[in-house]
Nucleic acid binder design. Structure first.
Length: 583
DNA sequence: CATGTACTGT
């Protein structure tokens, strides 16, 4: 029908919500809304999925479709819209209604959108049920649907189910491999993910399964998690061999991966090599600089290069810059950037960064005033940030206020108690210290175990605090004792202030001396040749004593030590750290 | 129709 073809052409050119509404009105007045399922469905999809659309409006249009005219594809469009939206779990409910009303019957497409909703809401029971339903409907050989299911299992933290599905598939394509690769990295089994990647590049797969750009992006992300620059090199080399490295998304992922593996120079080199940088390219480079403590460089890149190139910054851009200012102690610059935000409305995350910025600098009154003036309710992390600042600067009243807020919010984190206790201990208020200790014993305190790992000879060696699981633990502890003696000779006094003051001083020293990052460093001294660099990854932030120890070991043993903690990089060399002791 | 890069704080 010529009119329908014209209307399709017109619909593809809608660029505002007003266009959509006008189009919707036209379909209604001409009766086409009821008569032409393809036009109606295209309208609902555009309205539900496009950035200028409106999901509620799309769903209203779907509901206004007369029941007799509603097809499977109408349901598919509505379910797809919800699955891609802010509350994907709603798609499961709509699907249940569809099953109850059937006909129309669900098809592979319906299932695939519902599975995506289950994946996005990490709903394992729903995923299992949908898997069973897919088999019952005879859709077990649909590669796309099974790939979506595989992805859902991975996103529901069930890597074994994802692997099993993969192994049982008679036919796969590259998206299947990629879903497994990315899923393993997510689970988080980045090491297994890289093993899979090596299998992919060493076997000669048919064209349909040949690695593509997304393979590279997913593999780079696994390397980033592992903190293994050598593996990024291998991924990069492979991408170059296959001509997959011209893609800007691939280069963005490599910038991010190299930066997260400590190779800032290589990250920036690739960033410079990108001919048409996207917003993500700039954000990755800014975050790389921030993570390595180069806040001033991040600011300069933003102000002197990104803004003049007419790339509009987004929320992530500002987070990267604020984060760079936090790590570099650039209080005034950070405040200036924060106040300059016009095009992007600051979110709770931006406020959090600025509160941290002020708090670390000791400007506690301003930090608290900003919290009070925030257009959001402060979350736990924000109060933890303030509590940490109060501890660093010995502000009992603020610490108590923050701790009370945290308690009211049901937070039971070990760190909250320790910080508050430290504030009292610093003022010799031992009764209060005892009160906190009793509260900790009375409540069910949640503690995130700290761990560190280091890679030696392609093997990951993982340590917990006080860990004796490693087969070379005796040697590791002996080396640690020897290092302790050497750095005491250099004037080191153990910093035990981060340990709860309920044990003897000697025990506190032992507690910090067995921190996982020290064990990993000691293992590095044991297992790598003299003079070679040591790289440690820690899941939490490095503690003050470990930081001081790392500096002195770098000097006493002539080693460059890199520690990536959960927030940033520390590079220790010749007794100094790249963070300048501000972190 | 499926797979993917940038995201404050403990």
């Amino acid at each position: 029908m010529a009119a329908e073809a014209h209307l399709n052409w017109l619909l593809a050119r809608c660029t505002t919500f007003a266009h959509i509404k006008q189009f919707h009105a036209h379909l209604l007045t001409t009766g086409l809304f009821r008569r032409s399922a393809p036009l109606r469905i295209a309208l609902v999809e555009l309205c539900a999925l496009s950035p200028f659309g409106d999901l509620a409006h799309a769903l209203a249009a779907f509901r206004s479709t007369p029941h007799s005219a509603t097809t499977t594809n109408d349901w598919n469009a509505a379910i797809r819209g919800i699955a891609a939206g802010p509350d994907p779990s709603g798609a499961l409910g709509l699907f249940a209604r569809m099953l109850a009303l059937s006909p129309p019957r669900p098809d592979a497409l319906t299932l695939s959108f519902v599975v995506r909703a289950a994946a996005r809401s990490s709903a394992l029971p729903a995923t299992l049920q949908l898997h069973a339903l897919a088999l019952r409907l005879g859709l077990g050989a649909d590669v796309r649907l099974i790939t979506t299911l595989l992805d859902a299992y991975a996103k529901c933290s069930s890597p074994d189910s994802a692997l099993q599905l993969f192994d049982e598939m008679p036919l796969r394509d590259i998206a299947t491999w990629n879903a497994l690769l990315a899923g393993l990295a997510l689970c988080p089994h980045p090491h297994t993910a890289l093993t899979l990647f090596r299998r992919m590049i060493s076997s000669s797969l048919p064209d349909r399964e040949s690695p593509n750009e997304i393979t590279i992006i997913a593999a780079a992300s696994a390397c980033a998690q592992l903190c293994s620059a050598r593996d990024v090199d291998a991924v990069h080399d492979f991408a170059q061999q296959r001509g997959l490295d011209a893609d800007v998304r691939v280069r963005n992922a490599l910038v991010d991966a190299y930066a997260k593996c400590g190779a800032l120079d290589r990250a920036l080199h690739i960033f410079r090599s990108i001919p048409s940088k996207t917003l993500v390219s700039w954000n990755a480079a800014l975050m790389a600089l921030a993570m390595h403590g180069h806040g001033a460089l991040a600011l300069r890149l933003f102000e002197s290069e990104m803004l003049p190139s007419h790339i509009a910054p987004d929320a992530v851009t500002y987070l990267a810059i604020l984060c760079g200012c936090v790590h570099a102690g650039l209080v005034e610059d950070g405040l200036r950037v924060f106040r300059s935000m016009r095009d992007v409305r600051p979110t709770a995350k931006h406020y959090g960064a600025v509160v941290d910025l002020l708090g670390r600098a000791g400007r506690l009154a301003e930090a608290r005033a900003l919290v009070d003036a925030m257009p959001f309710a402060p979350d736990r992390v924000l109060w933890q940030t303030l509590l940490g600042a109060a501890r660093s600067h010995g502000d009992v009243a603020l610490a108590e206020h923050a701790a009370r807020q945290l308690a009211d919010m049901g937070s039971n984190a070990c760190g909250d108690y320790v910080l508050l206790s430290n504030v009292y201990a610093a003022k010799a208020r031992w009764n209060d210290v005892g009160r906190i200790r009793d509260a900790m014993q009375g409540n069910d305190v949640r503690k995130v175990p700290g761990f560190s790992y280091t890679e030696v000879g392609g093997e990951l060696h993982r340590f917990l605090n006080g860990d004796k699981e490693h087969e070379q633990w005796r040697e590791i502890y002996r080396t640690l004792e020897e290092a302790e003696a050497r750095i005491r000779a250099l004037g080191h006094v153990p910093e035990t202030e981060n340990v709860l003051h309920d044990i003897e001083e000697e025990d506190k020293e032992r507690a910090v001396y067995q921190h996982s990052e020290k064990l990993a460093m000691a293992f590095g001294l044991v297992a790598t040749p003299a003079g070679s660099p040591i790289q440690v990854v820690k899941n939490l932030r490095i503690c003050g004593d470990c930081h001081a120890v790392a500096k002195l070991i770098s000097r006493a043993y002539g080693r460059v030590i890199t520690v990536r903690d959960r927030a940033r990089f520390h590079r220790f060399e010749g007794g100094e750290c790249s963070c300048g002791d501000y972190w």
